[in-house]
């Protein structure tokens, strides 16, 4: 019951308002708890169990405790059962982090100046520009990746264009980390610009003027005033881009080809017919743990920033 209800003028009978919502919370939350419990939390426990299960002879798995799924990330089992260190999956984990980090960084480098420019436009034009940033995000992800396959691939737009300028014919820019990165940046860009714009938009312009009055030039103002004050938006954008980028599947599968895998495409491969489910589950658990560590670290840093006077 709110204060206004208590202080309301006297009335003959108490209105039923007080009971308006009070016993709704249990039943209201029940459907979401049931759905998430069944389709999310239960599967997570199962995948944790499968990651320490034994690989079945014909695909699938049996419920025998076995750490082979995890040890396979680092070691290759020889014919006689001895373990030999192999860096191939560590390289995939490393590539995943590098590409996701590079995607976040490149998106930030574009998003900050573009969002700043948009925030300085008159209201009408600002609305249109924000709409134009949002629009490509609604186009199917697979089509946005496909667009870059047409541009970079063999007989693609870019090779044909370069041919006109005397470069050798038949060039292709596909099937390498650069191609994967290009598609990752393109698909993630709107996710970065919007939160960055939201926080730059709220920036108090008089603070920029104050910085200049105190003889701060544009660069100092950017570094000491604009960036620190918009940090929450930059962090939000970085999370929105970095976390999905760690789990990217389409970009490495289509642009990187079979050799340049990321963790997402490696996991997917293990769950194709007759592959190694416990190993796939172990990599999935590793990916989830890394994402959780990143999110917890970000939350702790944000809390510390808040706590500072």
């Amino acid at each position: 019951m709110t204060d206004s209800a208590l202080n309301a003028p006297a009335r003959l009978e108490r209105a039923p308002r007080a009971r308006l919502w009070h016993d709704l919370s249990f039943w209201g939350l029940l459907p979401s708890r049931l759905l998430m419990g069944f389709a999310l939390i239960l599967p997570i426990f199962i995948i944790a169990a499968v990651s320490v299960a034994t690989r079945g002879a014909y695909g699938g798995f049996t419920w025998d405790f076995n750490l082979a799924g995890y040890s396979q990330i680092l070691f290759n089992e020889g014919w006689t059962g001895e373990l030999e260190f192999t860096p191939q999956y560590l390289l995939i984990i490393g590539r995943t982090f590098l590409l996701a980090g590079a995607t976040t960084l490149i998106c930030l480098l574009f998003a900050v100046p573009v969002a700043y420019f948009i925030s300085r436009q008159p209201a009408n034009r600002k609305a249109i520009l924000v709409y134009l940033v949002t629009l490509p995000f609604w186009v199917s992800m697979i089509l946005r990746v496909y667009a870059w396959m047409i541009i970079l691939g063999k007989d693609g737009t870019l090779p044909s264009l370069l041919e006109q300028f005397g470069f050798p014919a038949g060039m292709s820019f596909m099937f390498n980390d650069g191609a994967t990165l290009t598609a990752m940046v393109y698909t993630a860009m709107p996710l970065m610009v919007l939160p960055v714009f939201a926080s730059i938009e709220k920036l108090d312009g008089t603070l920029i003027e104050a910085s200049h009055d105190l003889y701060g030039d544009r660069w100092v103002t950017l570094r000491r005033v604009i960036l620190p004050l918009t940090a929450p938006g930059l962090v939000a954008g970085a999370i929105l881009v970095f976390v999905p980028a760690l789990g990217a599947v389409l970009e490495p599968t289509l642009m990187g080809g079979g050799k340049q895998m990321m963790m997402g495409s490696l996991i997917q491969l293990q769950f194709g017919g007759g592959r190694n489910w416990p190993f796939g589950a172990a990599i999935a658990m590793t990916l989830m743990a890394l994402v959780m560590l990143f999110l917890i670290d970000t939350a702790l840093r944000a809390a510390r920033r808040e706590a500072r006077p």
Partner: peptide, 11 residues
């Protein structure tokens, strides 16, 4: 909060 591929294989 979780990468989609992890949820997908878990499901």
């Amino acid at each position: 909060l979780l990468p989609e591929i992890v949820l997908a294989v878990a499901t």
